Amino acid sequence: TVKFKYKGEEKQVDISKIKKVWRVGKMISFTYDEGGGKTGRGAVSEKDAPKELLQ
């Protein structure tokens, strides 16, 4: 599970739902399947990112 803040809201998403991951400076950005055909997005700092996300 990845915990992150998006627009001031605390969120979390299961690693299995993450589609795409990329690095922006010291942040790790990602998109994930929100269900219902929607794609969500989020970002975590490199130090807070789970190891599975960095692979």
Rank of each mutant, 00 (worst) to 15 (best):
Y32A: 00
G8R: 03
V13L: 06
Q12R: 11
K3H: 09
Y6G: 03
D14W: 08
S45K: 12
E52M: 09
K19F: 14
V24A: 11
S16M: 09
K26Q: 13
E10R: 07
I18F: 03
I28K: 00
G25Q: 04
T31D: 06
G42F: 04
S16V: 10
L54S: 06
Y6S: 08
S45E: 13
V2N: 01
I28R: 00
K26N: 15
Y6K: 06
V44E: 00
Q55H: 12
A49L: 04
S45L: 15
K7A: 08
G37I: 03
K19R: 12
I15R: 03
K47V: 14
S29P: 02
D33V: 07
I15T: 05
K26A: 14
K19Q: 12
V21D: 01
L54N: 03
W22C: 04
E10L: 15
K51V: 14
E46D: 09
D33F: 04
I18K: 00
L54T: 08
T1K: 12
W22Y: 07
K7M: 11
Q12F: 12
G25N: 07
K11N: 04
K11W: 05
K47Q: 14
G36L: 08
V13N: 00
K26S: 14
R41N: 08
G40K: 07
K3L: 11
R41E: 10
K17T: 10
K26E: 14
Y32D: 00
E34F: 09
I18G: 00
K51M: 13
G25I: 02
T31G: 02
V13K: 01
E46A: 13
Q55L: 13
T1F: 15
I28H: 01
K26F: 10
W22T: 06
I28Y: 06
Y6N: 06
E52Q: 13
F30R: 00
Q55V: 13
V44N: 00
A43V: 13
G40L: 10
K19V: 12
V13A: 04
T1Y: 14
K47R: 13
V21Q: 02
G42H: 02
S29L: 13
E9I: 15
E9C: 06
A49K: 01
V13Y: 02
E34C: 07
E34S: 10
Y32K: 00
E34Q: 12
G40W: 05
K11E: 02
D48K: 10
G35W: 03
G37Y: 05
K38W: 06
G8E: 04
W22G: 02
S29V: 13
S16Y: 08
K19G: 06
K20P: 01
K47T: 11
